[in-house]
């Protein structure tokens, strides 16, 4: 147990003060989602790993946890992509280049990159789940020789809700990326796959001993994706999931993001499936 006398003053932190970051790029990329590029003050680096998140602050409204969408290999700047679903995110949509955004973080555990080196990476992204996984994807692409196959499964509700469509095109054109995109509700222009994301899994040819799956999506998606992967006999400990909870403080104090005994903001948001299995509140 940590005791007061074990702690020196300099070891304590002002945990709740944001760093003001300059918005250096902003673009509404779908009806609901806006993309931002931000710059830390004084040339600092955010120093994140793929899968981590920050707390974004708007004074007068509050804070919200937002996944970092850029690869750590992108120098100097970092990117966020924010869906407008609440008061805070609806205010953030008014932020444009030149505005200052309050940022705390990065927080939590991202994907354990040391365990991913040399492996085939299977990315399973549902909807806005592509945002944190884009960080992983671009990291893999920037260090392409360090990884095996890169298989990306991406599902959205409608074609107009697909994120990062320019990048999807680039990934599609690369020989070293296997991209499969599906939508639940196609429109007349859609020529690709139709159906929920799990329909993409059965036909995959996976090397079971060397494939690592990274899954992010809406809460309802996880069980079904995990089930499909298990029926392909992918071992549990090769499955990583990034969960969404109400991560209010980001530093394991406020209690809002607790999943049984673990804090999503500290022990996650990226978890190995083996660690999630015993947690009844997880999936």
């Amino acid at each position: 147990m940590k005791r007061l006398q074990d702690v020196e003053h300099h070891e304590t932190e002002d945990l709740y003060y944001p760093t003001m970051c300059k918005v250096t790029g902003a673009k509404q990329i779908t009806e609901m989602e806006k993309w931002y590029e931000l710059e830390m003050p004084d040339g600092q680096s955010l120093g994140h790993s793929p899968g981590q998140f920050v707390e974004v602050s708007a004074f007068g409204i509050g804070e919200a946890p937002i996944s970092i969408s850029s690869s750590p290999s992108k120098n100097g700047k970092f990117e966020l992509c924010i869906r407008q679903v609440g008061t805070l995110t609806n205010v953030l949509k008014n932020y444009e280049t030149g505005d200052m955004m309050g940022i705390r973080g990065p927080f939590g555990k991202g994907f354990p990159m040391e365990k991913l080196f040399g492996k085939d990476i299977l990315v399973v992204a549902g909807g806005i789940g592509l945002v944190p996984l884009r960080s992983l994807i671009n990291y893999v692409l920037d260090n392409r020789k360090d990884f095996g196959r890169l298989i990306i499964l991406y599902g959205a509700k409608t074609p107009s809700e697909l994120l990062f469509t320019d990048e999807l095109e680039t990934w599609k054109d690369r020989d070293d990326v296997e991209l499969h995109v599906t939508v639940d509700q196609p429109d007349e222009t859609w020529e690709g796959n139709t159906g929920v994301i799990t329909t993409l899994i059965p036909s995959l040819d996976l090397k079971l001993n060397t494939t690592i799956a990274a899954i992010t999506g809406p809460p309802v998606m996880y069980k079904f994706v995990v089930m499909s992967l298990k029926s392909k006999q992918l071992p549990d400990d090769q499955i990583y999931l990034s969960l969404e909870r109400r991560m209010k403080c980001g530093v394991g104090k406020c209690g809002h993001c607790q999943i049984n005994g673990v804090y999503c903001c500290q022990d996650g948001p990226v978890f190995n499936y083996v660690d999630l299995k015993p947690l009844e509140e997880a999936l």
């Binding site: 007068g60 409204i61 609440g86 008061t87 609806n90 205010v91």
Partner: peptide, 8 residues
Amino acid sequence: IALVLGKQ
């Protein structure tokens, strides 16, 4: 104030 600031 919320309405004036355009927030919920």
